[in-house]
Amino acid sequence: MNVETHLQNVEQNRMRLMIEETIADLCSTSSLFLRNMVVVDLGCSSGPNALALVSIAVDAIHNQCLHFQQPQAEVCVLLNDLPENDFNMVVKSLVAFQQSKKSVVTGIVPGSFYERLFISGSLHLVCSSNSLHWLSKAPEELKRNQIPAYDIDESVRIERRHVVIGAYARQFRKDFTHFLELRAKELTTGG
């Protein structure tokens, strides 16, 4: 297992409890979703961890249905990543996933999660593990002022450090705010 996969596994295990609690909360406050739910993983990647978060969510949904003695909910699992992702591998994983889980349909939505991806009010649960640290673009102010993110000259790098850090922090804040605004439109009431 490579380092990146290991780090993703650690993070996903930490998110397991959060996802299970969220599903339990959804199930205790609404009965509509027990018939069908839409679960999305934004920035799913294409490796062995691509289905980890949605698998946790599907299992939690099915466990809640059993707990409330309801029929198995139909779950639509959608995976998202940039079009450059190796979706061939993801599709093969989705076929096996769909065959192993009852009442699950799957799909892929290529594109940047810094754009609208889903219709309004359609999502019950949105997961994103190790992808929100990617910015939509390099900060414009650094491009305008021709300041590289990393300068070979250590004294110049140290001198510009606060400018570079500030520019990236502002870009992250802008991107993350935009991300939340987009998802707020796409989430269903109570999602």
Rank of each mutant, 00 (worst) to 15 (best):
V3Q: 05
T5R: 02
T5M: 07
L7Y: 03
L7A: 00
V10D: 15
V10S: 13
Q12R: 14
M15A: 05
M15E: 03
L17K: 13
L17R: 14
T22V: 12
D25T: 03
D25K: 06
L26M: 15
C27L: 11
S30Y: 11
S31N: 10
S31A: 11
R35A: 08
R35T: 10
R35E: 07
R35S: 11
V38I: 02
V39G: 00
V40M: 01
V40Q: 01
D41T: 06
G43I: 13
C44I: 15
S45N: 05
S46F: 07
S46P: 15
S46H: 08
G47I: 15
G47V: 13
L51Y: 10
S55V: 01
I56W: 02
I56M: 02
A60N: 02
A60V: 12
N63V: 14
L66E: 10
L66Y: 05
H67Y: 11
H67I: 13
H67S: 11
Q69I: 15
Q69T: 12
A73N: 00
E74Y: 09
E74C: 12
C76H: 15
C76E: 14
V77E: 00
L82N: 04
L82G: 02
E84R: 04
D86N: 09
F87N: 10
M89C: 04
M89P: 04
M89L: 07
V90I: 15
V91P: 04
K92V: 13
S93W: 09
L94A: 00
A96M: 12
A96I: 14
F97W: 08
F97N: 02
Q98N: 05
Q98R: 12
Q98W: 11
Q99Y: 10
Q99N: 09
K102A: 07
S103T: 10
S103V: 11
T106M: 07
T106L: 13
G107A: 01
G107T: 05
I108A: 01
V109L: 05
V109I: 14
P110S: 00
P110W: 01
P110V: 01
G111R: 08
G111N: 03
F113N: 00
R116I: 07
S120P: 11
S120Q: 05
S122D: 06
S122T: 15
S122Q: 08
V126I: 14
V126A: 13
N130F: 09
S131F: 02
L132Q: 09
L132C: 14
L135R: 01
K137M: 09
E140Q: 04
E141M: 06
E141H: 04
L142A: 08
K143Y: 12
A149D: 14
Y150W: 05
I152K: 03
I152V: 06
I152M: 06
I152F: 00
D153L: 01
E154N: 12
V156M: 02
I158M: 04
I158T: 01
R160V: 06
R161E: 02
R161F: 11
H162S: 10
V163C: 06
V164Y: 01
A169D: 08
A169V: 15
R170Y: 15
D175A: 04
F176R: 09
F176I: 13
F176E: 09
T189V: 14
T189I: 09
